[in-house]
C-alpha cells in the first residue's frame, strides 16, 4: 500500500509539472503575439485580440480540466478505495500540489489578460478632439451653402439650423466621435483609477473613499461628454444609493 501511494504521488507531481511546463511554453509564446495582435487590430473593439485571448484562456481551462479529471480518478479514487489506510500525508501532499498548480493557472490567466495592456483611451480622445477642431468650421448648409459652425463635439446625429436660411441640416458625427461616447466611462475610469486603488487597498473598507472616487470619476465622465451630464448625474445618485446599502 505504502508503495502504491508513493508511486501515485510521484506520478501526480510529474503530471502536474508537465502541464505547468506546457502552460509556461504556451504563455511565453503567446504574450508577444497578444501584444502584436492588439496593436495591429484595426477594430475599435479589438475583437481579433479578444478571440485570441479567449482561445488561450480556453486552453488553460482544458489543462485545469485534465488535472481535475486525474485528481478525481486517481487521487480521490485511491483515497476512497483504500479508506482508512491512506495516510494524511499522501492526501495533503497531493492536494497541496494541486493547489499550487491551480495558483499557477490563475497567475498565467492574469498574465495573458494583462499582456496587451489597456487601450490608450486618453490618446484616442485627444486625437478625436484635435480632428474635431480641424473640421468644426468647415461645414456648409446643404440648402444655401452658408457656413455652419459646429458649436461643440456631438456624439450622435444632431439637427443643426442654418443661421442664414433656417434649414434643418443633420450633422452626422465621425465614427471616431461616436466611439468617444462609447468609451467615455472607461476613459473616466482610467483617469481616476488611482482613487479606486486607494479605496480598494485600504482595510477596513472606507465608504468615504469610494464616494470620493465615484464623484471624481463622474466629474471626468461629464467633462468628456457634457451632453450626458444630466443623465449621468441620475445614474450617479443611483450608484451612491446602492453603495450606501452595500456598506450598511
Amino acid at each position: 500500500m505504502e508503495e502504491l501511494l508513493r508511486q501515485t504521488q510521484e506520478r501526480w507531481f510529474v503530471f502536474l509539472e508537465k502541464l505547468e511546463v506546457r502552460m509556461g511554453e504556451m504563455c511565453n509564446a503567446a504574450i508577444p503575439e497578444l501584444k502584436a495582435i492588439f496593436k495591429e487590430d484595426q477594430d475599435p473593439y479589438k475583437r481579433a485580440h479578444g478571440r485570441m485571448l479567449a482561445g488561450l484562456l480556453g486552453q488553460l481551462r482544458r489543462m485545469q480540466d485534465q488535472a481535475n479529471e486525474v485528481k478525481e480518478d486517481k487521487i480521490l479514487g485511491l483515497i476512497y478505495s483504500s479508506g482508512v489506510f491512506t495516510s494524511n500525508d499522501f492526501r495533503e501532499a497531493c492536494f497541496n500540489r494541486h493547489y499550487a498548480f491551480e495558483k499557477r493557472c490563475h497567475d498565467y490567466t492574469s498574465l495573458l489578460r494583462e499582456a496587451a495592456g489597456q487601450q490608450d483611451l486618453e490618446a484616442f480622445y485627444q486625437e478625436q478632439l484635435a480632428s474635431f477642431a480641424l473640421i468644426k468650421d468647415q461645414f456648409t448648409c446643404k440648402q444655401c451653402g452658408g457656413k455652419i459652425a459646429i458649436s461643440k463635439m456631438f456624439f450622435i446625429a444632431t439637427y443643426v439650423t442654418c443661421l442664414y436660411c433656417q434649414t434643418q441640416n443633420t450633422f452626422m458625427p465621425s465614427s471616431g466621435a461616436q466611439m468617444v461616447l462609447h468609451n467615455a466611462r472607461s476613459l473616466a475610469e482610467q483617469r481616476t483609477a488611482h482613487l479606486l486603488k486607494i479605496y480598494e487597498e485600504r482595510q477596513p473598507k472606507d465608504p468615504a473613499l469610494y464616494q470620493q472616487y465615484l464623484r471624481a470619476m463622474f466629474d471626468q465622465w461629464n467633462q468628456i461628454t457634457p451632453d450626458m451630464e444630466e443623465e449621468n448625474e441620475k445614474f450617479y445618485l443611483r450608484l451612491l444609493k446602492d453603495n450606501s446599502i452595500n456598506h450598511l
Binding site: 506520478r11 508537465k18 506546457r22 504556451m26
Partner: peptide, 15 residues
C-alpha cells in the same frame, strides 16, 4: 472544436 484544431495543446500529457 479541439479536433478541428488538431487537438488541445496538452492532449499528449497523461498521468
Amino acid at each position: 472544436f479541439a479536433s478541428a484544431q488538431g487537438g488541445n495543446v496538452a492532449d499528449d500529457i497523461t498521468f
